[in-house]
Simulated assay, not measured.
Amino acid sequence: MICLFGNQKGGVGKSTLTVLSGNYLSLAKDWPVILIDMDYQQSISQKYEKAKVLENEEPYEVLPANLDSFPVLGPVLAKNKKDAVLIDLPGKLDDDGLIPVFKIADLVICPFAYDEFTFESTVLFTVVLKKVNPKVDVIFVPNRIKANVKFEIMSEVNEQLSRFGKITPPIPDRIDFQRITTFHTPLSLYPVITPVFEEIFADYLWKK
Rank of each mutant, 00 (worst) to 15 (best):
K9P: 12
P169H: 02
K146E: 05
Q8S: 05
I109L: 05
V141C: 05
V132Y: 00
V196Q: 14
H184F: 13
L25T: 05
V123W: 00
D39Y: 01
Y40F: 08
E198H: 15
Q46Y: 09
P111V: 11
L129P: 02
M38L: 11
K50N: 14
L124Y: 02
R163W: 01
E49D: 15
L77V: 09
N158P: 04
V192S: 14
T18D: 02
Y204V: 02
L20C: 14
P186H: 10
A147M: 08
E57V: 12
T118P: 04
I171Y: 02
N133T: 13
F201V: 06
N158K: 11
T168Q: 10
A65Q: 11
Q8D: 07
K9E: 07
F183V: 10
Y48Q: 06
Q46S: 14
D203L: 12
N148S: 10
F125C: 06
L107R: 08
V12W: 06
D137E: 07
F183R: 14
K146V: 08
F119T: 01
A51P: 09
L161H: 07
D176L: 10
Q41G: 12
V157K: 00
D39N: 04
D39A: 05
I171S: 05
I44T: 13
K166L: 13
V127N: 04
L67Y: 01
D30E: 03
E61W: 06
A65T: 09
K131T: 04
F177L: 05
C110D: 00
Y114D: 03
N7H: 13
N23C: 04
D30P: 00
V62R: 08
L98E: 00
L189N: 08
V72S: 06
V141Y: 02
E49F: 14
P172N: 05
T181C: 11
V33L: 06
P191L: 04
I145W: 00
S188R: 15
G10M: 07
D173K: 10
D203C: 10
Q160C: 00
F201C: 07
P186C: 13
E116Q: 13
A113T: 07
V157Q: 00
I44A: 06
S69M: 07
L161Y: 12
V85I: 15
S162L: 13
V128T: 14
K82C: 01
K146D: 02
V62E: 13
L77W: 01
S26N: 06
K79L: 09
K50G: 09
E199W: 03
F112R: 06
I200Y: 03
E120R: 04
G22P: 08
D137F: 00
T181Q: 11
Y60L: 13
S26H: 08
L17S: 06
F70Q: 04
K150F: 12
Q41A: 13
F151H: 15
T118D: 15
P170H: 05
W206C: 04
N7K: 14
D115Y: 08
I145N: 01
L129T: 07
D30F: 00
T168C: 03
G11Y: 10
V132I: 09
P32F: 01
L73I: 11
A65E: 07
F164C: 11
P134V: 07
S69W: 01
P195D: 10
L161C: 10
F70A: 03
S162P: 12
A84C: 07
Y204E: 07
D37S: 09
T182E: 12
T182H: 11
M1W: 02
K14C: 09
V132A: 03
D95M: 02
